[in-house]
Amino acid sequence: MKRRGGLLTGPYIVWMALFTIVPMLLVVWFAFTGEDGRLTLDNFARLLDYGAVFWRSLGLAAIATVACFVIGYPLAYVLSRETEAVRKSAMLLIMLPMWINMLLRTYAWMSILENNGLLNQLLSFLRLPTLHIINTPAAVALGMVYNYLPFMVLPVLTVMLKIDSSVIEAAQDLGGNQATVFKRVILPLSLPGVLSGITMVFVPSVSTFIISKLLGGGKTLLLGDLIEMQFLGNTYNPYLGSAIALLMMVIVLISMALMNRFGEGEEEVVVL
């Protein structure tokens, strides 16, 4: 049995070794070496110059995550109490944009938010003052929320649907009105879904580069952009790029470990 198991998982193990473990080790190797090929910590010392980019990335990702929670959680709660038919159609609408290419969606937002874009045309038609959104951090945060909102709604909804209706009835039976039942039963029981949602929104938000590039107009430099520049830009420096990537991975791992601790005793947080 054991041997057969080894045989069956063989292809995946080879795949993982070639495309996950080796590249990871390469990233670590590059992060700790200089252009001359010697081991050095210079790359990490240079990271200090980019402190502002780090904070901006983490800040924008945090804002996007909070916004996704504020929009997504109530939606998931309402949908969990709807009939299956309503829920299914709503889910379809939520998922629909995800099936369209992300680049295309982000370009669409560009043309909406541009100074002479759809939004401002509408505003001036209504004789309202126009807004300057494109190429600001606000536009980047908006793009993040738009792209990653489904990743908050889906895990929260899944967990809420799993809450046994008799547990909710028990809370009503014991004297809980709607607000109390929500506060004392539904909210704590949906926490694992919220934690998954936070992870699934925060992690891609903090490392995105295409959204900030298109909607931030290059003015809102994020970690993802910084890494891209080190590998594809004029400043070609894979050593520094690897160091940034490594640090980011550490940040993500630490935040997920904190999350898992926070949700201890509940179901394990779904990791991307």
Partner: peptide, 28 residues
Amino acid sequence: PPHRRRVNTVFQKYALFPHLNVFENVAF
């Protein structure tokens, strides 16, 4: 509504609150 009735129910499948310990379940 149920929360304003002077009756309490023991449910078929217990319906205990999984996020609370025994004390907090009873104290609910």
